[in-house]
Design a protein around this nucleic acid. Structure first.
Lengths: 374, 374
DNA sequence: TTGTATGCGTTATCAG
DNA sequence: CTGATAACGCATACAA
């Protein structure tokens, strides 16, 4: 029924009670700070606790209290058995990690632990179901489960969606304002730089984030009289390697290059820029390149990467807060929480040092940040 | 004693048993695939399971079986209440995330979940103690706890150290070969490029990894007749921003610059390179810059970053495997598991395209990889 | 093949 | 202020 390993001397509340000459109820009280306990009793108990290295067993605690104090964060992974990181995962590394840090921080603040699980494909549904029994609530990131398949879970279990379409009728969704970000980017390229022939290098196929960014970019660009090359030519996978390959393939096509390539994320932008440079094409004088995310490295690239800033860590924080609200029974209605994005102008779009210096540092009316080219 | 929230309809094994007209033992058997069950019974049970959305409660399961099927991964965080990411954390982002992915993968493969926790400073010890009650074993990464403080825990609980000194007498340590990596780097800079005045830009203060890299670099360089500037001038914090600031401060010092700056990690190298470029100093013709990690972006930088490759994800995999071996009672003796590193030569050290083309692509004798400058 | 009964380590509700 | 004691949901030895 139970196997004790090498590291057995785990003590229970009974051991402590016996050692201190009190009942387990008393031990529970002093350990959890409930009720009022005579100081001498408390001391005896705490002494025993230390002597025996007593730590409450979370499983028992969870079983008794009905709350495991654990929430799960599920992210997508290509459904494979590989031990190595696929290139498409590389591109989402920074994103995922920032989310994790934010989530862990917020969870810890409320006394919860964070359980991590990656899944995808056919096994995703059963994996999510299993997690349902191990946690008090789940955060499902983009692409782990089609939104219609999360509904059944969300009906009887607290679930928050991270980066979905925002159209879920059963769950809270937390995401960033992709549309506004790419709208500002397109406007900047077309209006500010007068570029007319554009391209959007996408992220992984089927990603709502990538789709939203592509759509917003195209709409704004076309509304302003610019053209955007067909998406089939510009399929990426969030990674710098994937973007480099895509750009190289496009180069071999021979057709005149677009004047600007807006990438779905910063990693892709780095790969795109690399492929262009390797082919002897100057960025940004011949082709402008932009990103999305504003990873810390972005400002230290050459040229500095013009991109859209999104508060990734905050995304994790907000998702956890929304989830914990659900867990405690409040706020159970479906909501769409959208975090702001802002344009960060550096040099890769073609803004020169002079031009940057000429602009106001902050233009809060359209949430644009202009960095000095130091 | 127990509060049911909004999402109550969680069913127990009793509900299923009642619905299917069998005992809970039978339900347990079919759910876990034990014993031999008549097909018709199995069908009835599974039908009830699906009808009631039954998922076994992990807390109860863990309590009963004595195994929670959860392992914890603890990483260091600056002891603060900030919601934002400190700059020193930014630098370890990629590292931590890769480790997490590897760990999660390996854990899942063995049916375990991964619990994440960040801590540091004074609260670390009690945090680790608490995790002791929530998991079956712990992986402690660099700097969460001084090694002498983990010993008491390791005596009665399965613990694996990730990236320590390798000198622990009580725990398994999993780390990469920092010394060999930096040895090869120093040798390359001094012997291959004939550089004599060097510098090592460190990671966060007190990090065994950074210290080992610094020490190995200095020893090899000095043994080969080169000099390395005092460490006080070159303190970084793993981040690109920190490295940029350090380099800028060094520039203001006015003294002649070293001919090469070996950085403790790739993020720092990017920041260093940025600061140099911003000051009008050419890399690598005037000053060579190298990294450590070989992050995916490294080959897509301009110039391509010469660095030391370390199998970060593998680090997580191996740590989990070692931990699970301990958990199951085998392999409890202290060991020092060292994963290999290898030199990756690109352009930032001064190797030209021609030089690179002239070298063999693989020189397995000294684990050096020479990339073509595509 | 299936059912009965017990224990796992807590929390929490009562009495005292 | 402290002590019995009943859940909590599941696994499993044992009985039928």
């Amino acid at each position: 029924m139970q196997v004790r390993g090498e590291h057995s001397p785990v003590s229970t509340i009974y051991d402590v009670a016996a050692r201190a000459g009190v009942s387990i109820a008393t031990v529970s009280h002093v350990v959890n700070g409930h009720g009022s306990i005579r100081q001498s009793t408390r001391d005896r108990v705490m002494h025993a606790v230390r002597e025996l290295h007593f730590v409450p067993n979370n499983a028992a605690r969870g079983l008794s209290s009905g709350s495991k104090k654990v929430i799960g964060l599920v992210f997508a992974r290509v459904p494979s058995e590989w031990t190595t990181c696929s290139s498409s995962e590389e591109g989402t590394l920074l994103f995922t990690d920032s989310v994790i840090r934010g989530a862990e921080l917020a969870a810890q603040r409320d006394g919860y632990s964070l359980l991590l699980h990656s899944t995808g494909g056919a096994k995703a549904a059963s994996a999510v179901a299993a997690l349902t029994g191990a946690t008090d609530g789940l955060i499902l990131t983009d692409r782990v489960l089609p939104e219609r398949r999360v509904t059944p879970f969300a009906r009887y279990f607290p679930i928050v969606l991270l980066a979905g379409s925002g159209r879920s009728r059963t769950s809270v969704t937390v995401r960033v304002d992709n549309r506004l970000g790419m709208h500002m980017m397109a406007e900047h390229l077309v209006v500010k730089h007068g570029l007319r022939r554009l391209a959007f290098l996408s992220g992984a196929a089927g990603s709502p984030d990538s789709d939203a960014r592509a759509d917003a970019f195209r709409r704004t660009a076309e509304a302003l009289g610019a053209t955007v090359e067909p998406g089939e030519w510009w399929r990426g996978d969030w990674s710098s390697a994937g973007a480099a390959v895509t750009v190289q393939r496009r180069l071999r096509l021979g057709a005149p290059l677009p004047e600007a390539i807006a990438c779905a994320n910063d990693s892709s932008a780095i790969g795109a820029q690399y492929a262009l440079s390797a082919a002897g094409i100057q960025v940004p004088s011949e082709v402008a390149v932009t990103g999305f995310d504003n990873i810390p490295l972005a400002r230290h690239l050459t040229p500095g990467l013009t991109t859209v800033h999104q508060p990734i860590q905050q995304l994790g924080v907000v998702a956890v807060e929304a989830l914990l609200a659900k867990v405690s029974g409040a706020q159970t209605h479906a909501r769409d929480i959208v975090l702001p994005t802002r344009l960060v102008v550096r040099a890769s779009c073609g803004c020169s040092s002079d031009a940057l210096a000429g602009l106001a540092r902050w233009r809060s009316d359209d949430a644009m940040l202009v960095e000095e080219a130091s």
